[in-house]
Design a protein around this nucleic acid. Structure first.
Lengths: 226, 226
DNA sequence: TAGATTGTTAATCGATTAACAATC
DNA sequence: TAGATTGTTAATCGATTAACAATC
């Protein structure tokens, strides 16, 4: 019946959301797929196709109402409901996430911080006290946890991830440099592999450098022929 | 002549690199595309296609030499050469990056930290002193900078990015929640949009939840018919 | 040589773009 | 009503998978 919407589409939705938010701030009331396509550097066709995966949010001859579309996309992405997040691993990255206030505006609320380092116990980070990892089970028993962010070293990631799954947590935001192997395939994992991203940048950087050199050589060749 | 290799392929290369590194650690000497495909949950065909974009690294009847392939992919990704990185914005995220020692093993060396907050001036983070942003130009004049990581608020990102471009920096690792608009189209940008990633997770979480409910309803229906 | 497995071409699948009828 | 722009179908393009000849 309702065939799954591809991840390619899902990945673009937050970007639409962001641009619509900016338009909203600027006081823009309506926008056509064509105008938006120019701003975002995508085709108007793609915008219309993407949106129509979720429903007809526009109106012929008018375009899209910015506020309405913004809210609808927010709803699609689940931003109208609250999501409780716990962070496992209160190193620099964990602290960065705990202090990042923008998440809260989108309904993502950090409600727990866990670490194994006893020096951190009780320390307040982003208004939340750091708990010891052994308190995870009692915490989960008394607090609803929607998402767990893993920012601990990769060596322990797999073990803790499965512990979380056993506690009924259905979504993992994984920053550990490893592909989690979970016992329960129903659990949703989103990976943020910073070093992978850096390597991709490195590759593209070298490629662009090579192209620049080639361009330069071609120009020189041409001018020397003249 | 040499048509550009698609980003889809590039994005998979760091993952191959990671798995090959693990195999190397385990002392595995050779591996076939089929064995690797089982480990990585991709098709053997895709592995062979991906690798053959860069050259024939395998040998018929034998497979791939793990060490050799690992090194070759490292070379393709530019990991055999040193890349100097400066970080603009020494908040929690900037500090997390500065302290992340794994980057150095891949040839990415943090060589400068910049912020506008005078309280941070001279503070040592990850062995590097924090400099004031106004020192950016003299620093760039005396130090080779390959990559700039932007971890400051989005409002200043565009302005600073273009300042970096004018200093000749050709690669930007952008953590600011904005699409940079650069004057020079030759500059390579890699975006890490954490909130986009979190929204994607949120969507997938809800979808998986719905599916579970549907499954459950179907089961109940069947059993009540019995 | 026989068996294994690559490199590569061909077939399929899915995603993007183009086109246009529907409709505000 | 005429003009604009969507929603949607059809065409194209690109990426993935399958197949197999080449070759170690």
């Amino acid at each position: 019946m309702n065939k799954d919407i591809s991840q390619a589409v899902i990945r673009r939705m937050p970007r639409y959301y962001r641009y619509l938010g900016e338009l909203l701030d600027e006081g823009v009331e309506r926008i056509s797929s064509n105008e938006l396509s120019l701003k975002m550097n995508v085709t108007a066709s793609q915008i219309r196709q993407d949106l129509n995966n979720f429903g007809g949010f526009g109106q012929q001859g008018y375009g899209y109402n910015v506020q309405y579309l913004y809210e609808e996309i927010g709803r699609i992405l689940g931003l109208e409901q609250r999501h409780n997040i716990i962070i496992i691993g209160v190193g620099n990255l964990g602290q960065a996430l705990a202090n990042y206030s923008s998440f809260e505006k989108m309904g993502f609320v950090i409600t727990g911080l866990f670490d194994i380092n006893p020096d951190l116990e009780g320390r307040i980070v982003g208004r939340i006290p750091v708990r010891m990892l052994r308190e995870l089970e009692p915490f989960a028993a008394t607090h609803k946890v929607d998402i767990a962010a893993l920012t601990m070293p990769k060596y322990t990631a797999d073990k803790i991830a499965n512990r979380l799954v056993n506690l009924g947590i259905r979504a993992i935001w994984n920053f550990a440099h490893i592909d989690l192997e979970l016992m329960d395939k129903d659990v949703v994992v989103e990976n943020v592999h910073l070093s992978d991203s850096l390597m991709q940048l490195s590759y593209n950087m070298m490629r662009s450098q090579k192209e620049r050199k080639k361009e330069f050589a071609k120009k020189n060749e041409t001018s020397s022929k003249q």
